[in-house]
Simulated assay, not measured.
Amino acid sequence: MIRGIRGAITVKENIEEEIVPATERLMREIIKQNGISPETVASVFVSVTEELTAAFPAKALRQIEGWAYVPVMCMQEVPVPGSLPKCIRVMFHADTEICQEDIKHVYLEGATVLRPDLLKA
């Protein structure tokens, strides 16, 4: 079954030196917590809020060994007034036997406020 595995992280500045490493940290944590491998991932979507323009965060996945052939797409979030700024969101589409309620969604830094209901101890 293909499941969506979500995550998000915030950065302090609109610079590549923050955007790419933060995205890599988030992706590595999603991969680790859910025990996924590149062969089980159909695609990864990455979105950023409108003020993050200094880098393509998808570049982060290319820095993880073995993930070079997984399709990744970057896009911009809908600029809703009052939404969390400087936020990078990720959605892995993975083939897994894990049931939906046992998926471990990962929210780091300021993004923990987005979906506290999905965070598990």
Score class of each variant (00 low, 15 high):
Ile36Cys: 11
Ile36Thr: 12
Ile36Asn: 09
Ile36Gln: 11
Ile36Ser: 13
Ile36Val: 13
Ile36His: 12
Ser37Met: 10
Ser37Asn: 13
Pro38Ile: 04
Pro38Lys: 00
Glu39Gly: 15
Glu39Phe: 12
Thr40Gln: 13
Val41Arg: 03
Val41Ile: 05
Ala42His: 02
Ser43Asn: 11
Ser43Trp: 08
Val44Met: 10
Val44Phe: 07
Val44His: 01
Phe45Asn: 02
Phe45Glu: 01
Val46Leu: 07
Val46Tyr: 06
Ser47Leu: 02
Val48Gln: 06
Thr49Asp: 04
Thr49Ala: 07
Glu50Asp: 13
Glu50Gly: 15
Glu51Arg: 03
Glu51Asn: 06
Leu52Lys: 02
Leu52Gln: 06
Thr53His: 12
Thr53Leu: 14
Ala54Val: 11
Ala54Asp: 11
Ala54Trp: 04
Ala54Gly: 06
Ala54Leu: 12
Ala54Cys: 10
Ala55Arg: 02
Ala55Phe: 12
Phe56Pro: 01
Pro57Asn: 06
Pro57Phe: 01
Pro57Trp: 03
Lys59Glu: 14
Lys59Met: 12
Lys59Thr: 15
Lys59Pro: 03
Ala60Phe: 00
Ala60Tyr: 04
Ala60Asp: 09
Ala60Met: 06
Ala60Ile: 02
Leu61Phe: 12
Leu61Gly: 00
Leu61Gln: 06
Arg62Phe: 06
Arg62Lys: 14
Gln63Cys: 10
Gln63Arg: 14
Gln63Asn: 14
Ile64Cys: 10
Ile64Trp: 09
Ile64Gln: 02
Gly66Met: 05
Gly66Phe: 09
Gly66Cys: 05
Trp67Gly: 00
Trp67Leu: 04
Trp67Tyr: 09
Ala68Ile: 05
Ala68Trp: 01
Ala68Val: 08
Ala68Met: 08
Val70Leu: 02
Val70Glu: 01
Val72His: 00
Val72Gln: 03
Val72Cys: 07
Met73Val: 14
Met73Ile: 11
Met73Pro: 03
Met73Lys: 15
Cys74Tyr: 08
Cys74Asn: 13
Cys74His: 04
Met75Phe: 15
Met75Gly: 15
Met75Thr: 14
Gln76Thr: 13
Gln76Tyr: 15
Glu77Phe: 00
Val78Met: 07
Val78Glu: 07
Pro79Asp: 10
Pro79Ser: 05
Pro79Thr: 03
Pro79Phe: 09
Pro79Gly: 01
Pro79Glu: 01
Pro79Val: 02
Val80Glu: 10
Pro81Thr: 11
Pro81Ala: 14
Gly82Gln: 11
Gly82Phe: 08
Gly82Pro: 04
Gly82Leu: 10
Gly82Asp: 08
Ser83His: 11
Ser83Met: 15
Ser83Asp: 15
Ser83Glu: 15
Ser83Phe: 06
Leu84Ile: 11
Leu84Trp: 09
Lys86Gly: 08
Lys86Asn: 13
Lys86Met: 09
Lys86Val: 09
Lys86Asp: 06
Cys87Asn: 11
Cys87Tyr: 04
Cys87Pro: 08
Cys87Thr: 15
Ile88Met: 12
Ile88Gln: 00
Ile88Ala: 01
Ile88Asn: 03
Ile88Thr: 01
Arg89Ala: 11
Arg89Ile: 05
Arg89Val: 08
Val90Met: 05
Met91Ile: 15
Met91His: 07
Met91Tyr: 03
